[in-house]
Write a protein that binds this DNA or RNA. Structure first.
Lengths: 144, 144
DNA sequence: CTGCCACTTCAAGTTAACTTGAGGTCAAGC
DNA sequence: GCTTGACCTCAAGTTAACTTGAAGTGGCAG
C-alpha cells in the first residue's frame, strides 16, 4: 500500500495543507499513519474530499458532512437517510432552477425595472417558496 | 403610500429584526423613512428579501448580492451580467444534479461500501468536475 | 399626561471555516 | 553527520453573517 503525503494530496486535490489538518481535527477526514511526523493518507481520501466538496457546494455544513461518514471514513448512511438527502438536494435544485429561470427572464424582460414585471415577481415567489425548512431555519446561525 | 414597520416585515418574511438592521447596515436593503425612530420600509422590500434569500441559497455572499442592486434597491445588472449569473446557477444546478444522482445510486447500490463501487466513483467525479471556478476559489475564506 | 412597549443605537459576543505565525522535528540527499 | 525543507503543533487571528445586551426613545391607548 502506497500512502500519500499531505503535499501530494494538496497537489492532487487543490486544498491547502492547513485545511486538510483542520478537516482532520474536526473529524471529516483522517490520516492512517505517520511517517516520522508526517501524516500519511490513503488514496481513498481523494474520493472522500470530492464527496466533501460536493456536499459543501450543496450547502451542507462540515458538521453535517462529517456525520455522513463512519469511523473508517466510509460513507455510512442508511438507505432511508440517503433518499432523504437526495430529496433535499432535489428540492434545492428545483429552487435554483426557478431562480435561474427568473434571472434569464429578467435579462430579457423589457420592463425597465424588473421588480415591476409581474412575471418576474411570480417566478421569484416560486423561487422562494418553501424555503423555510432548509438551511435558513436551522440554528439561524448563518444560512447557506 | 403605506410603509411597513420592521415588525411587519419580520412577521411577513420571517427574518429577525436584527438581521434586517444588519442588512441595511451593509447596504443590501434600505428603509425609506422613519416614523419617530422607527424604520419604514416600502412593501417592495419583501420582494427584494425574496431575491436575497434565493441568492443566498444559490451560494452568493451578501456582498455579491448587494452589488446586484442599484442605489434605490432596484436590481441593477446588465443583461450580460444576468446571463452570466444564470450560467453560474445552471452550472451549480448541474453539479447538484450529478450529486443527487450519485446519492440516489448509493442508496440503491448493492456494494457494501460505496467507495468501492465504480459507478459511484464515476458519478462522484462528475459531480466534482470543474468546481474550481466557483465559490471555492474566490477568496478561499469560507467556500460553499 | 402617563406609561407601555415596540422600536432604537452601539458595542461586544458567537459560530463556522479557515489562515497565519512562531518555533520545533526529522528523513533524505549530499 | 549535517543541512535542508517539507512537514509538524499550538495559539491566535480573520471573515461573514449574525445575535445579544444594555440603555435609551417616542407614538399612542387609556
Amino acid at each position: 500500500m502506497k500512502f500519500l503525503d499531505i503535499g501530494e494530496v494538496v497537489a492532487q486535490f487543490g486544498l491547502s495543507a492547513s485545511t486538510l489538518r483542520y478537516y482532520e481535527e474536526i473529524g471529516v477526514i483522517r490520516s492512517v499513519a505517520r511517517h516520522g511526523l508526517r501524516r500519511q493518507y490513503e488514496p481513498q481520501v481523494l474520493t472522500q474530499l470530492s464527496l466533501i466538496s460536493a456536499g459543501k457546494a450543496a450547502g451542507f455544513s462540515l458538521e453535517e458532512i462529517g456525520a455522513m461518514f463512519g469511523p473508517q471514513g466510509e460513507p455510512q448512511l442508511s438507505r432511508e437517510a440517503m433518499h432523504n438527502k437526495a430529496e433535499e438536494l432535489e428540492a434545492q435544485i428545483r429552487r435554483l432552477s426557478a431562480l435561474a429561470r427568473t434571472v434569464r427572464h429578467a435579462a430579457e424582460c423589457q420592463a425597465e425595472n424588473q421588480l415591476q414585471c409581474p412575471k418576474f415577481r411570480r417566478l421569484l415567489r416560486l423561487a422562494t417558496r418553501r424555503e423555510q425548512h432548509n438551511r435558513q431555519s436551522r440554528k439561524t446561525t448563518r444560512a447557506s
